[in-house]
């Protein structure tokens, strides 16, 4: 009981209650996050519905190859995250630490690829707010596609992926601090809860990408 009392916050009756509160709190927060990204997806849907050809034209300029690799990287990171939770639940400190660090590494890989991708776009003259460098092919221009509408796609692309990357950075910070804790093998019961709820967050960020990928990279390929 002494080990339990050291990790139980004063206002909870038992660890069960603390675990329940932490899990529910994270789910409520994820609902908030879903609606936060939901505003961006709503804007995307409205504009794509208004100017479908412009969105498809813009999408074809994204790097499908890098986007696909990144999707794979994130899916693998979700697996390592799930394995980290598994190890933490069974109090396997070394395994938990290793999987946490692996997840951070995969997250870093994702962000580096993303930076390379952004870099390519910038050298092509495509950056948030750019219109002058967007050239619409004549056959699409004949169908009423304007550079403005193409630029709107990039506004949403950069805002959505930028916010997504920010969420990943926050997640990686959380995972790193957890890895330090588990490596020291301290606070195991409570640390397992922390790994679990941080895992929920990490999976959520993955889910956002699961929708970003087809909606931004995979349209207009035919």
């Amino acid at each position: 009981m002494s080990s339990e009392s050291s990790v139980l916050a004063h206002h909870f009756d038992d660890l069960e209650q603390q675990h329940e509160a932490a899990t529910l709190g994270m789910w409520a927060f994820l609902v908030t996050e879903l609606l936060f990204f939901g505003g961006l997806f709503t804007g995307y849907t409205v504009y794509r519905w208004r100017t479908p050809l412009a969105f498809e034209e813009a999408s074809r300029h994204l790097d499908l190859w890098l986007g696909t690799i990144n999707t794979g990287v994130l899916l693998v990171s979700s697996l390592t995250m799930a394995l980290a939770v598994h190890a933490a639940q069974l109090s396997r400190h070394r395994a938990a630490t290793m999987y946490l660090l692996l997840t951070v590494l995969l997250g870093a890989g994702f962000l580096i690829i993303k930076m390379v991708e952004y870099g390519h776009k910038f050298t092509q003259g495509i950056y948030p707010g750019s219109i002058e460098n967007i050239h619409v092919p004549p056959e699409l221009a004949a169908q009423g596609v304007q550079p403005n509408n193409v630029a709107l796609f990039y506004s949403f692309y950069f805002t959505t992926t930028g916010l997504h990357a920010l969420h990943m950075l926050i997640g990686m910070g959380l995972l790193l601090s957890l890895a330090v804790r588990t490596a020291r093998g301290r606070l195991m019961g409570e640390a397992a809860t922390r790994v679990e709820i941080t895992g929920l967050y990490w999976h959520f960020v993955d889910i956002v990408w699961i929708f970003v990928f087809p909606l931004y990279y995979l349209i207009g390929l035919t």
Binding site: L15, H19, E20, A82, H86, G189, T193
Partner: peptide
């Protein structure tokens, strides 16, 4: 702890 431990094979 009330958390459910999911077998690795499911993952």
């Amino acid at each position: 702890m009330s958390a459910h431990v999911v077998p690795i094979r499911v993952y």
